[in-house]
């Protein structure tokens, strides 16, 4: 029995040394270490050994098995390493992947979704209005009567005397206020149109209008909401400043600048060396607008603001020619 064990060990070690590949290893494991392998067979035959001899031989058989298991593991590791070195038939994992086609949203849509997402988070509802608007909503109800010089600020496309392509998303303020009583909290994203076309203007572009109407809404609240927006859209540390401006439908009116995101306020070509970038127009809703929609201007106050999406996308992605947005060149669209 003892000799038989020793023979098994010697023969197995010789077999192991001669192995060169994974199938060989598996065959070895089955022959010696498997459920019906030689080691198991020997162990079973211990039953026929005299009682006195059994503990010693049992231990010996166990030692042999453990020795072979250890040798097998070592040989297995050795073979794995040597195969890596020889590199025989390993797959080339540097080959490009099989990519399913996928596309991307237009950069303007991406920015618009982000802006709407921030205001939705602040509880602003989202509503869209018609692109082809009535003069009444685009101008008159916003305190811009016919022959008001402020109409010069809007190079308007007309369909007829009283129908036009909206020049801003502000008409949605009036439409929303006509439909519902305060409190109101809404943003209105959409396309707007001005007859103007050069490196910084396209005749169609995108705006997001926002407004909030309630009792005791103040200019400080407007500043607060816009500060939250800018911190989320850009960077929490982005400096903001408010400059007096004029819009017929807001008073006081403001233009809002942020510290230049390109040069961090040092001064560069994009910010025209000022360190600041104009990012939006805003103000408290003019009492004349409230009167037009039948709100009591002494009871309610509110603010409104308008953001240009292309402007934000250009700043965010360093786009220098606005016309790129509407050429839909895949080399452009694939970048965002």
């Amino acid at each position: 029995m003892e000799a038989e064990l020793q023979h098994l060990q010697t023969e197995a070690r010789a077999d192991l040394a001669a192995l060169t590949d994974a199938p060989g290893l598996e065959a070895f494991r089955v022959k010696y270490l498997g459920r019906k392998g030689l080691c198991t067979t020997v162990m079973r035959s211990l039953g026929a050994v005299p009682d006195a001899e059994r503990p010693r031989l049992g231990k010996l058989a166990n030692d042999v098995r453990q020795d072979l298991e250890a040798a097998f593991a070592a040989r297995e590791a050795e073979l794995a390493t040597s195969q890596a070195v020889s590199g025989a038939v390993r797959p080339d994992l540097t080959l490009p992947g099989r990519l399913s086609p996928f596309g991307k949203l237009h950069p303007v849509t991406q920015v618009m979704d982000e802006v709407c997402g921030i205001f939705a988070g602040l509880g602003f509802a989202v509503a869209e209005g018609p692109d082809v608007e009535l003069d009444y909503y685009n101008f008159e109800a916003l305190n811009i009567p016919p022959h008001h010089p402020a109409r010069d600020m809007h190079d308007t496309f007309y369909i007829s005397d009283s129908v036009l392509l909206r020049t801003h998303t502000s008409p949605m303020q009036v439409r929303a206020m006509q439909k519902a009583a305060p409190p109101l909290r809404m943003i209105a994203p959409g396309k707007v149109y001005r007859c103007d076309s050069d490196i910084t203007h396209t005749p169609m572009f995108h705006q997001v209008e926002g407004f909030l109407v309630d009792r005791k809404v103040s200019f400080g609240d407007l500043k607060g909401v816009l500060s939250v927006f800018i911190a989320k859209m850009f960077d929490a540390k982005t400096p903001i400043r408010f400059r007096p401006s004029f819009f017929p439908f807001t008073e006081p009116s403001a233009e809002v600048d942020i510290g230049c995101v390109i040069c961090k306020g040092v001064g560069c070509r994009v910010c025209k060396k000022t360190g600041w970038l104009e990012i939006l127009g805003a103000g408290l809703i003019d009492p004349a607008v409230f009167k037009m929609v039948g709100y009591d201007p002494d009871a309610y106050t509110g603010f409104a603001f308008g953001l240009g999406m292309e402007r934000i996308a250009m700043l965010k992605y360093g786009i220098t020619d606005i016309r790129l947005f509407y050429e839909n060149d895949l080399r452009f669209l694939a970048q965002f």
Partner: peptide
């Protein structure tokens, strides 16, 4: 759905 199937979004002028 469209982007998942390999389409890029285009935006063209309304006129």
């Amino acid at each position: 759905v469209m982007t998942a199937m390999g389409f890029y979004e285009a935006i063209n002028y309304s006129f």
